[in-house]
Amino acid sequence: MRASRFVSTVALSMCVVAMGGCAEGAGGNDAGESRPVPRSTRAQDDLLKSAESALVRRCLTERKVALPPAQRGSANRTGTGSGTAQDQGAARQRQFPYGIDDPAWAAEHGFGSAAATGGGPDRGDGARDAPQAQPTQQAQPTQQAQQQAGQAPASKRQAAERQQRLADALFGIGRRELSTRTATGLVVTANSDGCLAEAQRVLYGDQARWFRAEVAVNNLEAAAHHRVTRDAAYRAALARWARCVAPVQKAEDPGELRNAWQRRARDLEPRQATGLQRRYAVAEARCVRSTDLAGTGARLEKRHAADVRAEYADLVADHRRMRERGLRHAVRHGL
């Protein structure tokens, strides 16, 4: 498998804007002294994203590549709007990595965010979607898309060309020089000649080392989850869950239960489909609770997470050292 980046104007805008800001900060106080490195992990993450954003924008300017207008509405949407709507969204997106274990929640929300996709982080079947690999490869346009582009108005063709130039400048072109494999077997590749790579080189000192360490660290949680679902203790709990839910719907795991609902829902009216979804979700939750499937998964994950971190200790330590370097560079140069 290879991670891919699909190029769109919004995605490219948000790639830079969502890194943590658009402008380069002064970074110093009235005496000209550098501000201290933030102490909290979240603040450090924000600083690194802001620094990457500033360096990427500087690189694009030097290459005479223009960014699209910032999607301010999208960028500022977080933290605004109705609190009730936010609470409802958070409730529907609640994650249950080893099956829904809250019957009351299931009765209200069904499968939640997993219902629309047939899975996701909370599918509960032990097969989370692709690990958090750093997407690096641009999707190549199909022949049909190219033909359509040739028939499009000049303004659309020009916009597509500008978008492609931006993608090339951001992520690089040609053969992807960097490659690494995650603990779950996903192969991730990247170019080393784009502005994102250049920003990482400036911040962390060695972009290739940062790439390997970042991909590894971002996939530790997925690796632990992957091991849990192959653990004999978890498989035994899952077998008990399957027997429990069988009177409602035969399924080997919660992911298969969602798939069964989707197949049946195609021939139902929306209200009937919603009712069936909630029925299945409640059955899942009651059986998860009675068999302790989620509790078993959570306990095993702690053990496997420790094992994974121990196996990748060198990369984790390398990642920490490069983060510290990046933070120092960011405050020293007012990024």
Rank of each mutant, 00 (worst) to 15 (best):
S4D: 07
V16G: 03
G21F: 06
A26W: 13
N29H: 12
P38H: 09
P38S: 06
P38A: 07
Q44R: 15
Q44D: 07
D46Y: 05
L47W: 05
L47S: 03
K49G: 15
A51S: 14
S53F: 03
A54Y: 06
A54W: 03
V56H: 02
R58Y: 02
T61M: 03
T61S: 10
R63D: 02
A70F: 06
Q71N: 10
G73D: 08
S74C: 06
S74W: 11
S82D: 12
T84H: 13
Q88P: 01
A90P: 03
Y98R: 09
E108F: 04
H109M: 05
G110V: 03
F111A: 02
G112Y: 03
A114P: 00
G119W: 01
G119D: 01
D122K: 03
G124H: 06
G124T: 06
G126W: 10
G126D: 09
A127G: 06
P135T: 08
Q137P: 00
Q137D: 04
P141N: 02
T142C: 04
T142S: 15
Q144Y: 07
Q146K: 11
Q147D: 11
Q147M: 11
G150M: 15
K156W: 01
R157V: 04
Q158I: 06
Q158V: 05
A160P: 01
Q164V: 00
F171S: 01
G172C: 12
R181W: 02
R181S: 10
A183F: 01
V187A: 09
T189H: 13
T189E: 14
S192G: 04
S192A: 11
G194V: 07
C195G: 01
A197I: 07
E198T: 08
L203F: 08
Y204I: 00
D206T: 02
Q207W: 08
A208N: 11
A213K: 08
V215D: 11
E221M: 05
A223G: 12
A224P: 05
T229W: 14
A232K: 14
A237Y: 11
Q249V: 14
G255V: 04
A265E: 01
R266C: 00
E269R: 14
P270T: 00
Q272E: 14
Q277V: 00
R278H: 10
R278Q: 14
Y280E: 02
E284S: 14
E284Q: 15
C287I: 07
V288T: 15
R289L: 10
G295E: 10
A298T: 10
R299S: 12
R299F: 04
E301I: 05
R303F: 02
A306L: 09
A313G: 09
H319V: 01
R320K: 13
R328T: 05
R332S: 11
